[in-house]
Amino acid sequence: MEAIAFYVFAISTVILFGITALSKNVLYAMTSLAAGMVMISGFFFLLGADFLGVVQLIVYVGAVMALYSFAMMFFDATKDIKEKHGNPALVFLLGGLMALVFVVIFSAPIIGENMEALYPIVDGVGNAQAVGMVLFTKYLVPFEVAAIMLLVAMIAGIILAGKKMDKSLTTTVIEENPEDEILKESR
């Protein structure tokens, strides 16, 4: 049962993220990214990290994708993106080599057997409770720093996006104000 779920989620995430990385349309890429993130939360539920799965659904699929879709309204998302690619063979060679290196790095913990759990999972307590107990004791300072970082990011986002908000982004044609015409004629 776990194997079936794993393979369904794995194949769908790889396909959806492949569309994200290769598609020419911004809308298709964004939609497949959101769907792939839903599938990734399935992995977290499989791994017993229920709270992480819910956070993944709320933060990534809810907040981040909403932010992306709002930002997409600033840009022209309807037409396909033309990208000039210089040397595809070099990109594939570099990507393949890096993939090999990353697989080796990620597989390395299988060899290290002498690791011990620093904060072991407590028995008889739900995942959300266990996460809360560790987060508000051992990881309290990083938690507060993350909160300040999110506040700074929010202010930075407001200031950066709010500059020259009176100018329109998509309409490049300078529109004549009809009232000016009337004023000119009356003079």
């Binding site: 790889v14 990507g95 697989v103 990620f106």
Partner: peptide
């Protein structure tokens, strides 16, 4: 871990191209 490596290389390929 292998799935994670595959997904990471998909993202890395995207960043490169």
């Amino acid at each position: 871990l292998i799935l994670s490596g595959i997904l990471f290389s998909i993202g890395f390929m995207g960043v490169l191209r």
